[in-house]
């Protein structure tokens, strides 16, 4: 019995390495997402800058786009604005989903829309504005439905309104080249065909 006890460390190590091995092949940044290849959840939300304009799922179909969940309170979101603006100039449609954060939770869930609009405008003017428009997730319901766990998060949505890809973390040149670009170009082809098929 005592003899075999000296093999216990080996057994423990081998057990751990099985997990390390399987862990290698599952990228923690992309784990989730029950939403992949499902349509965007239903929503009806106002535009951030012109609240009388309302957006819903149907209005977003027709061409592939990036849905970027962000907020002025999120430093990494700022960091990606520059590169995403370059993407916009290359013809990538980027839609923002603004995730509001009250400045002080003690004041309740209220935020001043005018103040928020000014903050957003100021930030976008300083770092670059990649967004075609921003949807204001008033009660954070859509973010919840999308399973957003932290910002920034970006979803690639195809022309039919289906979610094709999900990324947690910033969009930088490397992520774009390696992850998004091939899929996006393919979807663009499909999207053109889709538009062609519509009378």
């Amino acid at each position: 019995m005592r003899k075999w006890l000296f093999f216990a460390p080996l057994a423990i190590f081998l057990g751990v390495s099985v997990f390390l091995f399987t862990g290698l092949f599952s990228d923690p940044w992309t784990r989730d997402s029950a939403l992949l290849n499902r349509p965007l959840p239903e929503f009806d939300l106002p535009d951030l800058m012109q609240p009388e304009q309302r957006w819903n799922r149907e209005l977003l179909t027709g061409e592939p786009f990036l849905l970027s969940v962000w907020g002025v309170w999120c430093p990494t979101c700022k960091a990606q604005l520059g590169f995403m603006t370059e993407l916009k100039e290359q013809g990538v449609k980027v839609v923002g989903l603004y995730y509001p954060l009250p400045v002080d939770p003690a004041f309740g869930d209220h935020f001043s829309l005018g103040q928020l609009q000014r903050d957003v405008q100021r930030e976008l003017a300083y770092f670059g504005n990649p967004y075609q428009f921003n949807i204001l997730d008033e009660n954070r319901r859509l973010s919840l439905d999308l399973g957003v766990s932290g910002s920034p998060e970006t979803f690639l949505v195809d022309a039919n309104g289906k979610i094709r890809m999900h990324h947690v973390g910033d969009i930088n040149p490397r992520v774009w080249r390696q992850k998004f670009e091939p899929a996006f170009e393919q979807l663009q082809q499909v999207g053109l065909a889709y538009q062609g098929a519509q009378p």
Partner: peptide, 10 residues
Amino acid sequence: VIGGSLLLYG
């Protein structure tokens, strides 16, 4: 390295 050394240890 680890597996080998722990085997030797055992």
